[in-house]
Design a protein around this nucleic acid. Structure first.
Lengths: 212, 212
DNA sequence: GTCTATACTATGATAGAC
DNA sequence: GTCTATCATAGTATAGAC
């Protein structure tokens, strides 16, 4: 498919990038380009031939670094989930014991990850289902942990009467959804990533009815 | 690919369904099954052969109703966008002139569409980018109108001092994201769709800082 | 680790009979 | 409108030389 006319799911204005990794330079180069193409067009809409062409190597050379296309995606999904979960955990640990501050910190971190690594977020969220279960399992486990982390904060805040929420599940889903959607609309320029994170943290506090 | 092992993007607990349509019965039967498969596995991960097999017809029979796989997706996307936009418009028209009631009505409608037609919502949102630009254009136009509809309500509410928002764009995106994500987590049972819609409408009012 | 060359399979789509 | 049969292409992946 030389003449691809698909609509891009995420704009390439911000170049695709990965967190710092400790892996082979060739593998990293492949991962970054694969990340961009998987994010923009989707995993199944990106062929190994096209990926190789974008890298200016032959398709067969890809298999020296990754045993299959699935493993390539799995590695991106693994990196994304681990970085994401580590970011949330670090934010929570630094936030002290007050639910308001915990929620603010975790939502800020969640927003910043999505604003800083939008391609990675898109691939993690939209292409995980393309993996065979064995390769998707680790990511799914981390995802559940991240949800639990947010759930625990909100439920504790309710118990401590810091928050007032009618339907906790709906509120938690709304807070998660807010940051999850960042890659699809946000572009830095008018609003700095940090200001976006602050704004979403404030909205999260409104959502849980934290006393202002 | 007989032995598909992909993870399903959306559970099939709720059977895929379409709004009432005025089209050929055969075409409708094809559309419903395609809707389910595109929603669960993705457009590119669903082959015409698999679709035909699920319908218990031969692949070539599909082409009597739709000239190509793209057109099949385009029809689903068109139906989804038109139904969605019509729902929001109807809700707004019935809501009177008060921004608080307008926002409540539109968010309720948005939530109900996503809770009632989750497969359609998933296909519209996740597979639109798989269409060539010419086929995607009508959907994109309706999408912009729906966003504008919400934006106008929020901005008018701010101007009339009914709402207090620091970053309108962030608030509007959050309100949209909340309903958009419904198909990926919500399952009726513990919470009725109507209660979900009410809960999201309340959260939207909190997000825009409507006086309680 | 990259190349050339190629095997094998799956894909979207069409031809033509009924 | 559905069938059988088939085409042309694109897909993932491998073999073997350098």
């Amino acid at each position: 498919m030389n003449d691809r006319s698909d609509i891009e799911r995420i704009r390439d204005a911000r170049r695709a990038k990965l967190p710092k990794l400790d892996i082979d330079a060739t593998a990293q180069r492949i991962l970054v380009v694969a990340l961009r193409m998987f994010a923009m067009h989707g995993f199944h809409a990106t062929s190994m031939r096209e990926l190789a062409k974008a890298l200016e190597i032959q398709p067969s050379a890809l298999y020296a670094s990754f045993p299959s296309k699935d493993h390539l995606l799995a590695e991106l999904v693994r990196i994304g989930h681990e970085f994401h979960h580590a970011s949330l955990r670090a934010a929570l640990l630094a936030a002290g014991g007050e639910p308001v501050e915990q929620l603010r910190a975790v939502v800020r971190a969640n927003a910043l990850v999505h604003a800083t690594y939008p391609h990675l977020a898109v691939v993690v969220n939209d292409e995980l289902h393309a993996l065979p279960p064995a390769l998707a399992a680790p990511g799914l486990a981390l995802r559940r942990q991240s949800v639990a982390l947010l759930t625990d904060i909100v439920e504790r805040g309710i118990a401590l009467k810091r928050f007032a929420v009618h339907e906790p599940m709906v509120a938690i889903a709304a807070i998660g959804a807010m940051s999850l959607r960042i890659p699809y609309w946000y572009e830095p320029g008018t609003l700095a990533a940090d200001a976006l994170a602050d704004a979403q943290a404030e909205l999260a506090l409104r959502i849980v009815g934290a006393a202002p």
